[in-house]
Amino acid sequence: MGIYLPIAEISVNVFVLLAMGAAVGFLSGMFGVGGGFLITPLLIFYNIPPAIAVATGANQVIASSFSGALSHMKRGSLDFKLGGVLLTGGIVGSTGGIFVFAFLRRLGQLDLFISLSYVALLGTVGTIMLIESVSVLRATRSGAAPVLKKSGQHNWIHRLPLKMRFRASKLFVSIIPVLGLGASIGFLSSVTGVGGGFIMVPALIYLLKVPTNVVIGTSLFQIIFTSAFTTLVHATTNQTVDVMLAFLLMAGGVAGAQYGAKAGQKLRGEQLRALLALLVLAVAIRLAIDLFVTPPNLYSLSGAGLN
């Protein structure tokens, strides 16, 4: 069944979009990530203009992170104060990202920039995760007890000034790295459409030493607002949010997420991470191939204005 997307201005198949949303929802439920880093490349492979894929991807991320954050709020595994500081940085980064986005779009380099950032981002994160999870898998197989990271050990980050106490996270830390982390993820979110959970979670654990149980909830909490802000700004400055497209993806996504979460409970943590790493790398490789293979059309047309 075809449906005409009012903003993307093309006809697409409803079931393809629902299935895409469900598949990504399944994976995001399984791995506990928002899924924005999968949705945007998938939309681009499906010929949705990258500018619209990015803005609509951000819109879709709100739905999955909102429902996730609600469960964490109920369990009390959400640090509002930490989330608030991250968010302040996030808004600044996101605003900057929007200007870069509009500027690159005028130059005609937006598509290239989006692909390059995805390849760099997913390639790095995927490789690190794969190495980490494979070494854990190997260690458990050989019977050795996994070496735990010593918590409480202080690194350079803890010597920075402007310290603040975060009670729910049992943390006393400078707000500079927190703001910086929030800002970089906000920037990424507005330029690439990702929520940034897959970067935020490891950064909070390894850099700021936030207890693992509050990390996911807090990260989801801040992603809701960063994505919401990104969606709003894209809607007002670029008019690239397609609600019809976003809604179809969300509808498939919320259903898929539940089955994914169930499937995820049957797998062990490091197996899950290895699988997610492979998936992330596969997306990165697919995008990288497109950059190097001779395109079927060397010429492309676009409107001279923003549209």
Partner: peptide, 24 residues
């Protein structure tokens, strides 16, 4: 999306939140 772009953005965000809440 073009004439009331801010309200449209607010609508898009609310739609996502409602869908997320309903889904849960």
């Amino acid at each position: 999306a073009h004439d009331y772009s801010f309200l449209y953005g607010v609508f898009a965000v609310s739609l996502a939140m409602i869908t997320g809440w309903l889904g849960r």
